[in-house]
Structure formats: C-alpha cells, structure tokens
Write a protein that binds this DNA or RNA. Structure first.
Lengths: 207, 207
DNA sequence: TTATTTTTCGATAGACCTATTGAAAAAAAG
DNA sequence: CTTTTTTTCAATAGGTCTATCGAAAAATAA
C-alpha cells in the first residue's frame, strides 16, 4: 500500500492524463473550426461530457488555447538549437531543420495546426511568451543560412531573411494538406522541400 | 436632364459604390479579426454606421464573406491562363505566375488575406464555386511545371504537384507579413521567391 | 415646396456562448 | 459498508451576436 505522498502523485497523474485528453479534444476542435468558430460545447461534445465539466481542467477558453499552442511549439527551439550547433555543412543542417519542423505533423497534427493558425487570437498578454519563442526559432533558422553563405555552402546572393520566412511558410502549410496526399510521408515531403530549396528547378550540369 | 432609364443606372451605380465601401470594411475586419472573431458590429463601426444598416447591402454575414472571397480571387485564373499559354520558356512563366499571385497585395491586401485565411469558414454550399476556381488555378500552375520538364527547362526530378503547392503556399503568406518588411516591394519579393525556386541555394558553376 | 424614393436607424426577438455554482455521481480510502 | 475525495453534471446569470422590422432621416424628383 502506497504512503500518503505516493498516493498524491498518483492522483495528480490521473488528473493530468485526463487533462491531456481535454487538451487533445480542444486542439482537434480548434484545428477544425478555428478558435472563434469553436465553442466550449464543441470541445465537450468531442469528449462526450458536459460543457461545464471542462472548467475542472482549464480556467478559460483563452487558457486552453494557450496550453495547446505551448504544446504545439514544445521542443522545436531546443531541437533546432541542437541542429544549428551541429558539426555538419549548412545544406545538411537545412535538411535537418526542415525535417524537424515538419515531422510533428505525424503525432500532434491538431496542435501543429492550431499553433500555426490560431495563435494570433490569443490575447496579447498570453501571446508574448510564444512570440518570443517564434522570434528565437526564426533567428536560429536564419542563422543556418547566414553560416551557409559564410562557409560557401550557399550562394552569396541568397536573401537569408526572406528565404527563412519562405521555408518556414512552406513547412507551416504542410499540416493543412497532409491528410490529402497519403503517398507522401513527412520524410519524403521534407526531402522534396529541401531538394527544391537547395538544388532549384533549373538543371545542374556538374552533378 | 437624364431620362428614366439613365436615372436608374445612376442610382444603381451610387448603390454599388457604397456597397463596395461596405465590402472593403468587411474585408478589413475579416482580415484583422478573422471571420468568426469579427462581428457585424465591428464592420459597422469601421464605417461609422449602425449595425443594422449593413443589411441594406448584404443579406447575411456569410454572403459578405463570399463576396469578399470572390473579389479576392477575381482575375487570378484568367491572368494565369494567359501566362500558361504564352510563348516563353517555363522559367519565365513561373516568374510571371509568382508575380501575378503576389502583386494584388498592393491594392487589395485585405481581400487577399481574407480569401487565404477565412475561405474555409464559408458554408460548403457557397464554397463550392471558389473551390473549383482554386482547383483550376492550381492545375494551371502545375501545368507550367509539367511543361517545363517536357521542354527540358526544369529537371526531370522535380515533383510538380508538391512544388506547385509549396510555391502557392509561399505566395499566400506574403500578405500576412508584407507590412512589416517595407524594404521589399512585391516585385522584389517575387524575384527572390522565383530565384530561390529556379536556381536553388547551392552555388552554380557555369552561369 | 411637396411628393417620392433611397438610405439609415433604434429597438428587439431569438439564439448562442462563457463561466460560475452548488449538488450529484463516481472513485478511492478507511 | 461508511467516509472522504475526486469528477461530472444541471441550471443559470449575464453577455454577445445575427437578422428583422417599421419608422425616421436624407436625398432626389416633380
């Protein structure tokens, strides 16, 4: 028989598991109907419980969106940080970065979509932290391109800032059409995207 | 003094001009707050009139969104059609197509943003026509790439369908950050995007 | 000016939505 | 089985939103 402290932990764990189910449902509904188009009643219906029961797990719809967005970006910056500091050429880093960005579509697609599409509806006080993470992420991404020019991996004419925005824009649209093209895996898709960016559509002679 | 028929035309014209102002306001509010986040009261406030006055110009909020979206895509297909059938190499066509897609950010940015971001919230009966136009547009865009491979302008390894989606995805994000980077004109931006797609980031030897 | 048409408005019905509250049901502990 | 704690619920206050309606105001015509 567990002692008092262990019992507390177990109870908290059970609560957190249920809470995760609630946020999963919220993410699914936000992704499908948009934040403002989704009601707490919709989320409850997704779970088969009463609308008021949700408030045992979050304090407001705003907070639910914040948690979903935080979950959606979780780990992104850390993984990109590791890629940037890696000891490989910039073109390999770009391939890794693109893969890193797209891959979560496989296991948290609703969080991914909600983060990309609904973050702007977070009240500005809650949005601050997430905006900072995005700025940091973008800077890391751009750094790969800047370093790539310095090490002569990329052409000097590359517009690093615009290219960074465009690469991320491409990755961010993937969760919105991933279900419709099952013949691509996320890995294949990342490869297509990276090949396009690195090689270009015009043929190359010496390769 | 105009006769009866001419008077009717003049009145209709005046009505249409005012209606355009109403849709302009709707597009602005939809773009800023999202369709579900925007109320008809917000649109009225933008115009400085009563909320109920709007219903003299449209029958429902849905209809307003439909009209804004239709205005947002107006001319796109026709212009791309002309580009596709033009007598120039595929790389030039791609440059033209990208320019054609991005340029409206200069004169109808709110319609552009609303079309890209809010179309999905149109009830499916109203959305049908617009979806068909998008399908047609995408097919035309992809045709440029397919033709480009056939005429040896592009590498045979190019994934035309994925590339089409990615190019359009890039163009579609432009209206969401255009205001923040004033040192790019839409033309310069189109050039960066096309250069990236055609040439790639890796240096080329013989050019 | 007076009469007619166009445009705007105030008031509101009817619906929906968020968040709260106290109580009931379910689960866990004793 | 009884008590305690956790989880869910029904009911609802208080707010917002869309769309309608008849009347008022403004513009135009006679």
């Amino acid at each position: 028989m567990p002692d008092g402290a262990a019992r507390q932990v177990k109870r908290k764990d059970k609560y957190r598991r249920r809470q995760t189910e609630v946020f999963d449902a919220a993410a699914a509904v936000f992704a499908r109907k948009g934040y403002h188009g989704a009601s707490t009643g919709d989320i409850a219906a997704e779970l088969g419980i009463a609308q008021s029961s949700l408030y045992y797990y979050f304090k407001s719809k705003d907070e639910a969106l914040e948690k979903v967005c935080l979950q959606g970006i979780k780990g992104y910056v850390e993984r990109l940080q590791a890629i940037v500091t890696g000891d490989v050429p910039a073109d390999v880093k770009i391939r890794e970065a693109i893969h890193n960005h797209i891959e979560p579509v496989n296991f948290i697609p609703d969080y991914f979509r909600t983060f990309v599409g609904e973050l702007r509806y977070l009240p500005s006080n809650r949005r601050q932290k997430l905006n900072n993470m995005i700025a940091e992420y973008n800077a890391l991404f751009e750094q790969i391109l800047i370093d790539g020019i310095a090490e002569k991996t990329f052409t000097a004419t590359l517009d690093c800032h615009a290219s960074m925005l465009m690469l991320i824009a491409q990755c961010n649209t993937v969760p919105f059409w991933f279900g419709q093209f099952e013949h691509y895996s996320s890995t294949q898709l990342a490869t297509v995207l990276a090949d396009n960016f690195l090689l270009g559509a015009l043929p190359r002679r010496n390769e």
